[in-house]
Amino acid sequence: MAYLELNNINKTYGESDSATQVLSNINLSIEEGEFVAIVGFTGSGKTTLVNLINGLLEPTSGEVLFKGEPVSGTSHERGVIFQNYSLLPWLTVGQNILMAVKEAFPKKSKVELNEIVADYVEMVSLTPAINKRPKELSGGMRQRVAVARALAMKPEMIIMDEPLGALDALTRGNLQDEILNIWGKDKRTALLITNDVDEGLYMADRIIPLKPGPKATLGPEFRIDIERPRDKTELNDNPSYKKTRNAIIEYLMDIGNARKSEAKAEIILPDLTPKDFVNQF
């Protein structure tokens, strides 16, 4: 049995008439220790999918199974790194992480909790900033805090919702390496949602494109059989990398074009003129 399973998931927002179906017929299974990336256009329902998996939303129909049990509500077993960091601005870096750790390990003593916090702050190399508030940090540092907060709860699975989307290319690259390092240490299961094909190719074992919504659904999966640790500069010369990359991009472009041609369908406007149009002048 798969570690995480999504069976025939549908998600609809709104009631009857004004309802829009965001996700339709999503099927996904992730094995333990696997790193899966879902790539999709912005606005294709990626965040909705993530929230279904982490338990913030419930599917309209279908089921989400985590270790064989249906997901109901959030759980400490599934750590989430949000798209927009979502740090609490009135708490310092240490306090933000401590709040999570306290909830995850209610039985530990204060000293132990502080040790955990210090360890994870050290891991994302923010020890000098432990007493700073989020506003004093750069975007990359904030995201590192968010990563530390999610990992400090020692989740069995990490769910990342476009974690690096708002960062510049250099910081992005560094953080990708950091996340991979941390993931490599105890091989937790990881799900990465991203809009960057290269990011997926560099980090994941499998890439699954999400066809854009409404009625978004998952496309065919692409396996990336490149040995870890991967080297960014060497990747460019790797034939298997090139092939997979081209295939994915071609697939996404095709979807994009299909979507465009659909949108082109002509709308015939009714032939109307204002009633007293002439008389006004």
């Binding site: 982490n54 338990g55 913030l56 509500g73 959030t74 759980s75 400490h76 750590g79 989430v80 949000f82 927009n84 979502s86 609490l88 709040m99 999570a100 909830e103 995850a104 709860m153």
Partner: peptide, 12 residues
């Protein structure tokens, strides 16, 4: 809403 989501994910 982001703060509320944090509270939910941390299970406060």
């Amino acid at each position: 809403k982001d703060y509320i989501n944090v509270a939910k994910v941390l299970k406060l």
